[in-house]
């Protein structure tokens, strides 16, 4: 049986890039107000070259409402999928994703506390929420790694997963407790925890792209080591990988990236779990190809999910997390069933 990587070529990247561009344009054009593709392209072209956008084109909707949202959605989709692919390789577990570590639960707890108690930064919309989420994500990481180290000096994968799951349960209970006493804030908190990217702007895109550039860059640098981990942690040590150091670096990068994503978009599940799975079927398990391809596929999936959330029950806007969970859960069951049946 010939495996998938043999058939891989750079054309796959080109196809992914074309699909991503098409999805982004589609998401800008379709919505409560439909905008012709020509108008969208004209507005983008003129703005890119700092020319006056011709009259009659909905410049405000294209450039100030949909474009930043679309960029943020794509960046979050790419980040979550990249983290999922990295965690599935690192932990050698196809059921892992960025949330396995428990850091996203920690970030959610920080955000919920800020929403319930009205923590804010003057002049920055949701600034308090973002800051609290990032802070709690970082504190969660320190707590989880410290507990894992105290439990098992070698910081084995099983210890980390166990501590992560227990920590997630704890934060979930704490969040429910806060929501119970949150009064008027309960609805805002509930909507935020389901994930939403409405109202996000270019300043969010700047934070997200910086985080993706730095953390994503480091994760991509460790693609070979992730291959070694995906084959087996002992094997990785035998071939000369500095197992503890690489594991720590990847976990920190994933945590920071997840923390930033959760702080801006709320809890968006299944992207990091399902998209690396589907991408692996196309490009194979080699992380040199899988990581970049997963970023593309995650971005495309989340763009389409966001489009569905905006348009399916228009004028009511669903939270993006509801759509990703519904589609992701079904997709996951289908993949799991097919994979098992093929064995």
């Amino acid at each position: 049986m010939k495996s998938l990587p043999e058939r891989f070529s750079w054309r796959v990247y080109v196809l992914f890039a074309a699909a991503l561009t098409a999805a982004m344009l589609l998401c800008i054009c379709v919505g409560s107000v439909s905008i012709p593709l020509g108008n969208t392209l004209t507005a983008l072209w003129h703005t890119l070259w700092k020319m006056e956008v011709p009259a009659g084109i909905s410049k405000n909707i294209i450039l100030n409402v949909r474009l930043p949202r679309v960029i943020n959605v794509a960046l979050i989709g790419a980040s979550l999928s990249l983290c999922g692919a990295a965690m599935q390789g690192l932990l050698r577990n196809p059921l892992a994703d960025g949330s396995t570590l428990g850091v996203s639960s920690g970030a959610s707890l920080g955000a919920v506390i800020s929403l319930a108690f009205g923590v804010s930064i003057p002049g920055v919309e949701y600034g308090g929420t973002i800051l609290m989420a990032m802070g709690f994500a970082f504190l969660s990481l320190i707590l989880i790694l410290s507990l894992a180290y105290a439990l098992d000096r070698s910081m084995s994968t099983n210890s980390i997963i166990l501590i992560g799951v227990i920590f997630s349960m704890f934060t979930s209970s704490a969040m429910n407790l806060i929501i119970t006493f949150a009064g008027d804030h309960a609805k805002t908190i509930a909507f935020w925890t389901m994930g939403s990217l409405s109202g996000t702007g270019f300043h969010h895109a700047a934070i997200l792209s910086s985080a993706l550039l730095i953390c994503g860059g480091v994760i991509l640098r460790y693609a070979r080591e992730l291959n070694a981990f995906a084959i087996g942690e002992d094997n990785a040590r035998h071939i000369g990988v500095n197992v503890r150091q690489v594991k720590l670096i990847i976990l920190i990068m994933v945590s920071v990236l997840i923390g930033v994503c959760v702080s801006i978009g709320g809890t968006i599940s299944f992207v990091g779990l399902v998209m690396p799975h589907m991408t692996r079927m196309i490009v194979g398990p080699n992380h040199k190809r899988l990581l970049v391809s997963s970023m593309f596929s995650g971005a495309i999936f989340l763009l389409l999910a966001d489009l569905a959330a905006r348009t399916l029950l228009s004028p009511i806007e669903l939270s993006i997390g509801v759509v990703t969970s519904l589609v992701g859960a079904i997709a996951f069951v289908v993949i799991f069933y097919r994979t098992r049946k093929a064995r």
């Binding site: 990587p5 390789g89 050698r92 995906a230 084959i231 087996g232 094997n235 194979g284 398990p285 080699n286």
Partner: peptide, 12 residues
């Protein structure tokens, strides 16, 4: 020795 993902013999 066991491998969880479909790497090729050459890759391993």
């Amino acid at each position: 020795n066991s491998v969880g993902y479909a790497y090729t013999v050459e890759e391993v």
